[in-house]
Design a protein around this nucleic acid. Structure first.
Lengths: 170, 170
DNA sequence: GTAGTGTTACTCGGATAAATATTGTCCGAGTGACATCGG
DNA sequence: CCGATGTCACTCGGACAATATTTATCCGAGTAACACTAC
């Protein structure tokens, strides 16, 4: 039961991208610098988010990443599943069938009760994550965090964001 | 987000031990055979359960493992935490402080909102596991599983269980 | 026949390798901006 | 002076090592049962 280090980075990056105006972008290198991370490695996680449809990537100079949809429609569950994978953490290996006494498949028609209990707990976990919208995270940060940090973060985004010129149908 | 393979084995072993009468024991080798697992590796997980106070180990010939308390007072959470560790899956590395702009510690007095949301979800996960008692798992297995499998499992336990000398068998 | 004692076989327990997943790094393909050149 | 074009720098994207964690195995310490011997 351990989540990868990249989950934290992915959420922070998504929250930072939520502060970008319009269809502007932030480059992966910029976000890596903001959090003191290895740029190349952060790209790996950002690509996972792009593949999952949470972010969009813009190539070329003045390119970068942006949210694929409004922050209100992105949940922590979307991000966690994108980075960690969609399959459940507990995988029933059906070890109950691996013993010396064998029966045909009909004897194991009912799913393993242990697996059911574990998956039920995981559904509760995912449901809680699904209720945490990215916009809530950002609003909480803006409201409760130290104002110096908030101001510095906004200034950082303002300074590094790149307004998309070619696609400014805004 | 991935649980170790040993969690499944640990839960199955605990459920099997719940079927042992009185203060009898089952050896690790016996349970490993029942599930087709490596005996030496299963011992590692059983020891974790012993260290956590979920199981008790009896050394010497006719030794083995038994539940440390009644199955009604053992939850899946106890087992999962014993095997996977008690620390939460999401560990906040405070990467928000690792950027180029630094503030003193007072600016970060409030805990990270992302961390709070992740821990809240994990509390929901653990709460669901805490509601799943080992006795419920066993009762569900006895009631809903195929009766041939139930009979075979009970027979296996009957055949391999070792009555502790203090409790004389009938 | 009974009690004491030494042996023994079986158990758990921890230290030790192999396999796998995660983390971190590098270089290449692609793309839009910029400077240059021609009209 | 304006437009087309070639070059370039910057971006993402995926392939390649290093590290950490998990998985698997082996051998040793400990203990209670068993057998043997002496009384």
């Amino acid at each position: 039961m351990k989540l990868g280090e990249g989950v934290e980075a992915a959420i922070h990056c998504a929250a930072m991208l939520a502060g970008v105006e319009g269809s502007g972008t932030l480059s992966g290198a910029t976000m890596a610098e903001a959090f003191g991370l290895s740029p190349s490695y952060l790209l790996k996680h950002l690509n996972l988010l792009s593949a999952a449809g949470v972010l969009e990537s813009v190539p070329g100079p003045a390119g970068g990443y942006r949210l694929a949809r409004a922050a209100e429609r992105i949940t922590l569950l979307d991000i966690v599943l994108a980075v960690e994978g969609r399959e459940p953490a507990f995988r029933c290996g059906e070890i109950r069938q691996r013993g010396p006494v064998k029966f045909d498949a009909s004897a194991y028609a009912k799913p393993c009760g242990i697996n059911a209990a574990m998956l039920k707990a995981e559904r509760a976990y995912r449901a809680a994550l699904a209720e945490a919208r990215l916009s809530d995270i950002v609003a909480d940060f803006m409201g409760t965090a130290d104002q110096r940090v908030v101001a510095a973060s906004c200034a950082f985004v303002e300074r590094h964001q790149r307004p998309q010129k070619s696609t400014k149908q805004a």
